[in-house]
Design a protein around this nucleic acid. Sequence first.
DNA 1: CTGAAAGCGCTAACAT
DNA 2: ATGTTAGCGCTTTCAG
Lengths: 349, 349
Amino acid sequence: MTPTIKDVAAHAGFSIATVSRAINAPHTVNPVTLEKVRQSIDALNFRPSPLGRQLRGERTRLIGVILPTIANPVFAECLQGIDELAAAHGYRLMLMTTQYDAERERHAIETLREQRVEGLILTVADADTHPLLDDLDRAGLLYVLMHNDTVRRPSVSVDNRLAAHDGVRMLIAHGHRRILMLAGTLAASDRARLRHLGYAQAMQQAGLTPAPALEIDFNADELAPSVLAHLTNGPNRPTALFCSNDLLAMVVMRGLRRARLQIPTDMSILGFDGLAMGELLQPPLASICAPNREIGCAAWKRLMARIDGTYTDASLALTLPHALREGATIAAISNTSEAPRIRSMQPLV
Amino acid sequence: MTPTIKDVAAHAGFSIATVSRAINAPHTVNPVTLEKVRQSIDALNFRPSPLGRQLRGERTRLIGVILPTIANPVFAECLQGIDELAAAHGYRLMLMTTQYDAERERHAIETLREQRVEGLILTVADADTHPLLDDLDRAGLLYVLMHNDTVRRPSVSVDNRLAAHDGVRMLIAHGHRRILMLAGTLAASDRARLRHLGYAQAMQQAGLTPAPALEIDFNADELAPSVLAHLTNGPNRPTALFCSNDLLAMVVMRGLRRARLQIPTDMSILGFDGLAMGELLQPPLASICAPNREIGCAAWKRLMARIDGTYTDASLALTLPHALREGATIAAISNTSEAPRIRSMQPLV
DNA sequence: CTGAAAGCGCTAACAT
DNA sequence: ATGTTAGCGCTTTCAG
């Protein structure tokens, strides 16, 4: 059916070894022979089977990608970046999702190892304490983490702590003092932890009291009554919500609207991720933007550098810059009783 | 490094053939032997290499997925469905995106063929006239189309014409008479064509005059002045816009807002796709919903059925039901000069 | 410069 | 019930 190297050899009247050399080391073969072989290749429309090469222990040109989900555009955007570079470099991508499940993470890694991927680009729940990553190190399977914010392993991310810190500082600069952080139920990630840390530090530095992150059920149509009570409860209600990601922010915005709260008049909202989608909202969502596509691209480049052995950078973690997108979901609070005066702030960033 | 079948054989004191049988046909081997082999497998943590099997001409357990982009959640949602079933059935997914580019479509198909995928799930621009799909048929490589609305090939889709027809009828039932269809610049797909056909038929059946689809630049921040003129121009301006997909609808909504038009008061908007995201908008986007995840799942099942040879269904195309999501972006037009009376309509669907 | 042959990990006749 | 062997498509010594 599909022609093999044998067919080409027969057609050209040479051995399969010569055909192989004509393909992989053209300079080592007589130009005349080379030409004949090439013609046979064209005539038969032969393309060397990756399978043979892969089995032979050559490079598989396979890269594994493991993501929590692609339903969240954050990861879809990263994947776009990876895919673009992979296509340009003749690599094939094998994709597996974990739905944030540890057992599926394990299974994905094992499956991709079996398939002899040359490297792995992945996002895990918690990078620092992940035993499987130690296994990879031990086995010599190269990988680069994406969005995992750790200095202990090869990774590409924004500085989640600092980014959250900047964002919350900005809220404070707008006069907010009672700022609550909201997180999804799958919040046991290094990202979520660091974002909350940044929030807490920004609060403390402004002499304010940070609160634990309030967990929100992502899938519920409405906000839980207990949550709503928290958000609307009397004079101590928060004036601003820092949501640990944009999807959550959107769900919260909808929930608040259903509860007849105006955004940003009654409540300011700040998201995290910088989803393109957010700008299309009304009002456009303020967010701490991670360069998701670039994170994917950078992870690819790092992985390639590790594979090529040109990875000489001493530091494991690559931190990409974040940006504040000041959408219209944030209102300034000027002279309410809670924030009696506009304090002078040092410039942001 | 990684143990091979040889290592297991040596460890267990049997031949590699016996080990292979212990794995693939346990009943043909002596229970005692079987147990020993299994212990060796466990001891060495052996997992048979897919590569050897694949080269041997066995099933590769590889499925190729080709999508225009995963930046559009429509495709990400499909992919989620596919991925879920693939993981459950022990298949691996190889993903390639085309960015709606014919050459990249060709390249993706060729690459995946070389890799000996057992089948292909893909979305192409225009299924009917696609020569590469004929090649696949000829080569016997099994595939199922997703979102390509054609009766000529194995496919899973909604009835784009009917869905658009229903949607536009609904607009008309709400009193709209001047309804314009908007399409993205990459509109040369069978989907877009059929959606416009449905629009045109609905208009004609109501005695209204359909217009050609107006092309919108997806990426521009604002709507082009010429477009804006079209939409706001005097008494003949449209009162409702049917957007060929939800992402476009969102961009248009933002553009209209920037031009100080109120939605739905000044303009009603109907999208197509039923993105989950749309419900989070303000106002929630009315849309013709395709069951994207289910389309992915159904495509998977069809492909598996074709591979297993249990695909006895006579019809090539599987049409999944669409649904109208009547968001708040549609206003009723009752007694304006343009629509002097509410005409009685037959019930919708 | 070219060819013969070994071998990557595995399965499937064919023997025993 | 188990072992031997050939071969999937390819690359790579090693000879010539």
